[in-house]
């Protein structure tokens, strides 16, 4: 419980820093700072449309944040979430496109399963390479992901492209397959329920199930876990598979919910899962507010660009700064806000 509270505290401090930084940058760059600040902070909450879009944007972030959390909990530095998200979404979208005449109740579960398994499979390669030849997971997952980007883009520009799109994008699949909207006219869709369901599921897996204990022990000291009787190679494989699978799901749920087809530009949903997981200290519940924070910064900047003269790229800078600040654990100790649990 104590760690849960201290994680929440850290998150609050990170938000505080982010807000201060946002204000400073806006004051420097904007010609009407007061108006810009108002739009940035209140824009996402100003009406149902913006609020819904903000939550909708957080859905894939929550799922990829969960994916990163579960791999990192096992000390498997899965840096390939973006690549796993891409390949999972591509295969899922292709399947949905091919199954356009089938009923929705069959297509959606099958497509989600396929995205999950393809994403998970491509992540599990890294754990195999580690187990077999001691190859660093961090390095192999990065290299695989970097090799996957051009591969996926190739399909979206060539064999599986929409010629009318004028950019790298797949054709639309049957519109009936899309998730229902929760808060029209905004984009918020019922994928939210799936993502929250996954959060609860993974909360129970991590805190109450034997698998969660095995993942945690593998992450905290793999050699000890192996010696104690945890089948660490299998656990690492499972953690990587779930992680990549969640990344694939994140992409596919976003496609079912918002876009209706696969787009070739970088959404960064996979990459952003990494800082979200670390900010949440791999706690499945805290992933939700952390993802909402990232989404809020993103949508605030977009609103600021729309109604004031904020540069939308400010979002990335603020998100990165939050993360950079939160990495300096000792900083929190130094200012006495957050103390490690110590005794003796």
């Amino acid at each position: 419980m104590t760690t849960f509270l201290s994680s929440l505290k850290r998150l609050f401090i990170a938000i505080l820093f982010a807000l201060i930084l946002a204000v400073v940058i806006i004051i420097i760059t904007s010609s009407e700072p007061s108006e810009a600040i108002k739009v940035f902070f209140l824009g996402p909450f100003s009406n149902k449309y913006f609020l819904g879009n903000m939550v909708s944007y957080a859905i894939p972030l929550i799922i990829s944040g969960l994916g990163a959390s579960i791999a990192f909990s096992a000390d498997m530095w899965n840096m390939g979430l973006e690549g796993q998200l891409y390949i999972g979404s591509l295969c899922g979208t292709y399947l949905a496109y091919q199954m356009s005449s089938c009923p929705k109740t069959i297509v959606v579960p099958i497509v989600l399963m396929v995205s999950f398994f393809i994403g998970g499979g491509s992540a599990a390669i890294s754990s195999y390479l580690k187990n077999r030849w001691k190859i660093n997971v961090f390095l192999s997952s990065l290299l695989i992901a970097n090799a996957l980007f051009p591969f996926v883009t190739f399909f979206l520009e060539g064999p599986f492209s929409d010629p009318k799109a004028g950019m790298a994008a797949s054709p639309y699949f049957n519109r009936n397959f899309m998730f229902s909207k929760i808060l029209p006219p905004s984009e918020l869709h019922s994928g939210l329920l799936i993502s929250l369901g996954l959060v609860i599921l993974f909360y129970f897996i991590m805190k109450r199930r034997v698998l969660g204990y095995e993942i945690k022990m593998t992450g905290e000291n793999a050699l000890f876990a192996y010696y104690g009787g945890v089948p660490t190679a299998r656990i690492e494989m499972i953690a990587m598979f779930l992680s990549g699978g969640l990344a694939g799901l994140a992409g596919m749920i976003n496609i079912f919910g918002s876009t209706g087809r696969m787009l070739g530009y970088m959404t960064n949903f996979g990459w952003n899962g990494i800082p979200i997981a670390i900010i949440a200290r791999y706690d499945p519940i805290i992933v939700v507010p952390a993802a909402l924070l990232f989404s809020f910064v993103q949508k605030g900047a977009e609103a600021g660009a729309l109604f004031a003269d904020i540069t939308p790229e400010i979002a990335q800078l603020i998100q990165a700064t939050i993360f950079y600040i939160i990495t300096a654990e000792g900083l929190f100790e130094a200012i006495g806000i957050w103390k490690r649990k110590s005794s003796a």
Binding site: K216, M217, E220, N221, L223, F224, A225, Y227
Partner: peptide
């Protein structure tokens, strides 16, 4: 320290 126990746990 490394094999017999997990210090973080």
């Amino acid at each position: 320290m490394n094999l017999g126990s997990s210090l973080k746990s």
